[in-house]
């Protein structure tokens, strides 16, 4: 697997850091997002920077040097490589570049709900945001979730712009089912157990079923996945987990095969279909 040597980018960032926060945001953009330009089409480093920040990339602060140093000392890159190579064999997943960066340790939600971990996956690359205290198991859970997305995105082979809310529910639910299979229920994300199956069914009828065909660019898609003033937090994620779990309970499909089923097949074979 191609684990990109982002530790060198991070070292360059720490070496070029200035005294002011605002300057450091630019240093971060230059050292971390400029080198990412070849991995994206038709975007600038600012767009990449903003996008990664919104998904949990660290924000420059006085502690980041120390965190980066510890992450390098613990060689989190090597641990990641081992996990992802195993999963690639197990699921027949592709070789994609993997970028590891510190997460935003100042963010309370990220700290308490996700143990300081976040990630972002595309069909052709994956970002992992972790801390210097991320354990091997916690790293494995994060990678299992994210790399499950990568593999499925390649197998369904539909452009992201064409994927809809149902696809997102299935992607997220399946990724956590993979975590449960690989690491056991203790390593599941908090959002998997946030609402009961009964509540998930009510929410399905009220908010989700009428919107299954919504594309990702629609703001309601985002609100259903993450929550809003009226929609419960992480509703789409939670319902996705109930949906894929219910399919799996009656079908006992291997993860290798599950990854290759269409979202509609999984829905039709679940209690929600």
């Amino acid at each position: 697997m191609t684990i990109v040597d982002t530790h060198n980018w991070l070292i360059a960032y720490t070496k070029n850091k200035k005294d002011k926060f605002k300057d450091n945001l630019h240093v971060q953009c230059d050292e971390i997002c400029e080198p990412l330009l070849p991995y994206f089409n038709d975007v600038n480093a600012y767009d990449i920077h903003q996008h990664l920040l919104s998904h949990g990339l660290f924000i420059p602060d006085p502690l980041d040097k120390q965190i980066i140093k510890k992450m390098i000392k613990d060689n989190q890159w090597k641990s990641a490589n081992k996990v992802i190579t195993q999963l690639s064999k197990l699921w027949g997943g592709p070789d994609v570049p993997v970028f590891i960066f510190p997460s935003d340790h100042t963010n309370k939600t990220l700290r308490t709900e996700f143990k300081g971990r976040s990630g972002l996956s595309y069909h052709d690359k994956v970002f992992l945001f972790i801390t210097d205290t991320t354990t091997k198991k916690e790293l494995q859970a994060l990678i299992t979730h994210e790399y499950n997305h990568v593999t499925r995105l390649n197998e369904v082979n539909i452009q992201e712009e064409k994927l809809n809310l149902l696809d997102a529910l299935v992607l997220e639910g399946m990724a956590e089912l993979a975590v449960k299979n690989e690491l056991g229920p203790d390593h599941l994300s908090n959002w998997t157990s946030m609402y009961s199956n009964e509540f998930a069914h009510k929410a399905w009828n009220k908010w989700i079923k009428p919107n299954l065909a919504l594309k990702k660019t629609n703001l309601i898609h985002e609100k259903i996945m993450y929550g809003s003033k009226v929609i419960p937090k992480w509703l789409g994620y939670n319902v996705g987990y109930h949906l894929v779990s219910s399919y799996n309970q009656t079908h006992q499909t291997s993860m290798y095969d599950l990854i290759r089923l269409s979202s509609q097949e999984i829905l039709d074979g679940s209690e929600f279909g």
């Binding site: 605002k22 630019h26 920040l53 949990g56 996700f114 595309y122 959002w191």
Partner: peptide, 26 residues
């Protein structure tokens, strides 16, 4: 100002980007 949404699928954590945090200028 908010940047373009570059998509992708995450772990559950997300906050809408408002430029470099609201009120932050350069």
């Amino acid at each position: 100002v908010p940047a373009r949404n570059l998509g992708g699928y995450g772990y559950g954590y997300y906050r809408r980007p408002y430029g470099y945090r609201p009120g932050f200028g350069w």
